[in-house]
Design a protein around this nucleic acid. Structure first.
Lengths: 200, 200, 200, 200
DNA sequence: AATGAATGAGCGTTCATTCAT
DNA sequence: GATGAATGAACGCTCATTCAT
């Protein structure tokens, strides 16, 4: 069982995924969903992780899917907030881009890595209604990105349309969950630089 | 130039996924696995799709997982072969890179899109043994990429280490399954160009 | 003297097969396994017999085979205990033999007849691991018999080797499940006498 | 895979279980039924043993159960015939008893051991109709035994009622399938003597 | 809130049997 | 006779969810 050094290191606590019963439950669920997939994770698995009987979970969440939904909502909200803060007070648009890339990488390989992976891989396990609701939240997150990219475009600093570049960036950053090793030689700052150089 | 009749255009038929009972079964399974996920696709779903009773599937495959494995093996073999042919006779390394990117995009959004998506998203539904066997096949596919990227590196045409660039490319190309629309304005050739420009 | 209320007569209740849910389940299973065979008894049969849905059985036993195993373990333990008590305080070795035969017959045609039949006829339905574990318990039961037969041999009261006589006795007693009728003319005491006379 | 030395040694060929396709099929089935039980033996198991596809068995037998029935009918007929021949020309009733015991033991541990075991252990896998038909054949076999035992009783040579002694003998002989080792120290003649001494 | 036995629909898989070739 | 793909009912088992305590 790995100990999450990232949370401790960052000093941050994900709102809604803190030390409360609900928060511990969501953290455990996020890890299990990432490791085993939503469908292969039983409510008993989750209950065991938080020291409950399976039936007791349903005092906190009406359905198993609602747990998945909560994991996704919390991580999007938390990271949207962090992303906004990250570019607060920065004027240079390229510096903003660096901040965005650096943060998104941190979200994906750092403290929220389990939930971020779940967000990508377990998307279709959400009901259509929950997909729609979650998509609205993701749109807020994406709006931050597009604002910055459009600022760069307005200044003639990027060669392609912002929405295409954003999609290429999304591919590059999200795929890091499959290969990037925080203990390896490549640092997140170096990787950030490499990715940003592909954009402008 | 849009090609929405990829199979006809290429003149190729994916070996093992042709009009034989087995081939039709694998095609149907690939689509269902992509649309619903492996765990949410029942053998009765697959059977219905090919006009069989559920028990009859097991004359073709010993287990449901073996169907998934076959989908993955077929698509890797088929695309590895196509990738090799795509760079056959090309001397210029950058032209080779263009061919690789153009082909991989085609694999992901074109005729083998269902199976390629399954390859990424249903990986953990394979047993460890089948993961190992499939990984060996993927290594052959990746070797083609690394050869070309190392050739570019040897000539000083790329600024980063080949293995890192390959990972960024993988992210960019594989994510296209989530957004690229073959009927949209952006052609595959244009997208190829955009991606290649990020590399060299 | 016929005893058709064996349980009441003995004043004992088979440990683990009492009125608890588990006990009722094991009793029902033993009867079904004897009547239909293990393989032809479905978990739905057993569940129906105890007023449960089939899935609910698996709160009590992890597998159907575990039910069979439990039936066998309980009956061996129970009868081993009863056999030991039966010769407690008897000095005369021939009287001990009478007690052993009388009790074994009682086990086979009396209160534990279903489980005893299952023990013989469904042996191969146990997994090798469970066979091994059960065999160890049977060895304790057999040790009681061999002790008495060796005592008789030491006193020159029997003409054949103890282990051969034990096998002949086992054949004679276990076969009674196929023909002996507790409501018939022949009493268990008479049958005991007939069998013991074949030994010494 | 054990080679049946008994058949070769005895020079006998069980009628209906000879080298014909049907005979080989019944021999294979008898062995499989004994080793795995009727329910756990698939028609594919049987077909494989005789080099056929499973569907082809049904040109020889209408149902799997009919194969079991045939195994039982053949072995009863064959052994009934052998038992009759065994006492042909013997005058002394005790000598007849010796011949019966010696032969029955041979049936159970010798050339027909597989089928004889099946007869005891797979009885309930027969349909009621086939049980009835088979029982009629067993009655012929038992009649030979009872004739001899009644002859002994008429001469005052046995102390118990013939039908009870027959049941004790049945138990003793049939149980030998569970323990007697033809390669062991105890010979069949010695065992015959031991059993006969228990009777008269 | 928590328990844990129970539910019941549904799963992957098996296999005797059929039948067109 | 033999084949082997197909059938389809049934199996053991799983698990999200419920609810009396």
């Amino acid at each position: 069982m790995k100990t999450d050094k990232n949370k401790a290191a960052s000093g941050l606590v994900m709102h809604g995924m803190d030390e409360s019963p609900r928060g511990k439950l969501l953290s455990a669920a996020a890890r299990l969903f990432r490791d085993q997939g939503f469908d292969r994770t039983t409510v008993r698995d989750i209950a065991r992780e938080v020291g409950l009987q399976s039936g007791s979970l349903f005092h906190h969440f009406a359905t198993k899917e609602e747990i998945l939904h909560a994991v996704m909502v919390e991580v999007i909200r938390f990271n949207t907030h962090r992303l906004q803060e990250a570019i607060q007070g920065i004027d240079c648009p390229r510096a903003k881009l660096v901040a965005l890339v650096r943060n998104e990488l941190q979200f994906i390989v750092g403290d929220t890595r389990e939930a971020m992976t779940v967000l990508v891989y377990e998307w279709r396990c959400l009901s259509p209604e929950n997909q729609k609701a979650t998509l609205a939240l993701r749109a807020e997150y994406e709006a931050i990105w597009l604002d910055v990219l459009e600022e760069l475009a307005a200044k003639g600093l990027i060669a392609e349309q912002p929405f295409i570049l954003r999609r290429l960036i999304t591919g590059m950053t999200s795929w890091t969950n499959a290969w990037f090793d925080q203990a390896g030689d490549l640092t997140l700052d170096e990787l950030t630089d490499i990715i940003v150089k592909r954009i402008c």
